[in-house]
Design a binder for these strands. Structure first.
Lengths: 139, 139
DNA sequence: TGTTATCCTTAGTAATTTGATAGGCATTAA
DNA sequence: TTAATGCCTATCAAATTACTAAGGATAACA
């Protein structure tokens, strides 16, 4: 179980757009180069973000993308939900698994709380406070 | 992103063993039948649980599995970590993604908190308080 | 008007994971 | 000796992930 590169790269895109908010469109090419990612792959990630109304596109030369809303009004949850799809699917849980229900509800609520209370503004401003390397991200 | 059946079925096994704790071994066959699952598939899930020292096996006729410890001393985190592997891999995060670090840390800690504070005893006793159907588990 | 930079769409694909199924050997209680 | 169980290895179809490839549509700008 993990958060895939879809969610991570998607957040990377959105944070870049948050940093450039109010300064006109940012091209995917610029974002891809700045973060050393495949532009083609990012195109596939931003498509659902556009469909979800989180970003607006400006076509043609010197076009690009802009956030559809202020960075303080877009949460990490908005982005992750679009790109990672349903998290903790325990839908259609069997009666036999009823004992586990409480656990999944607790985990779901804990994650929701973080995702819905962290905005792009939070993430864009935190930029490079560079903690020590070697920290780990296993639960 | 989701918690797969590995984690769910694994918890199902462990909760059954918790219910039968102190009453001798429980066979996988019995657990499989009670929960309408494939016995062969459960074998593959319990192998890592045994290797991790969470359960002990008793071979031969009328054998089965028992918890290696009291239900109150085994947490959901012990089980999930073994079966689901690393959660939220953001290891080897790039410098460019530094802005996201705070988010992953917050989510990691929130999930850890739930997993490490929910024991098999909690889950085994909660059994069938049967909440209304149709609740959802998307984040 | 032509060029170029960009968005947009579809298709393909190798590697990995998931969720099993199958067959058979090893061990032990009765 | 038999039957019940754990244990081990292999196989496999479907889905997902993380891309790559190719090219069309649109619009700024010279």
């Amino acid at each position: 179980m993990k958060i895939s590169t879809k969610g991570r790269y998607g957040l990377t895109i959105m944070i870049e757009l948050a940093k450039n908010f109010g300064e006109g469109p940012t091209s995917l090419k610029a974002i891809a180069q700045a973060n050393n990612l495949s532009e083609h792959y990012l195109e596939q990630l931003i498509a659902p973000l556009r469909n979800a109304g989180l970003v607006k596109s400006i076509r043609g030369a010197y076009g690009g993308y802009i956030l559809a809303n202020e960075p303080a009004k877009i949460t990490a949850g908005d982005v992750i939900r679009v790109l990672e799809g349903p998290i903790i699917i325990v839908e259609g849980i069997e009666d036999e698994e009823a004992a586990q229900k409480e656990l999944w509800i607790r985990i779901r609520d804990a994650i929701r709380n973080v995702l819905d209370n962290t905005t792009l503004e939070d993430l864009a401003n935190h930029s490079t406070d560079s903690e020590p390397e070697g920290y780990m991200f296993y639960i």
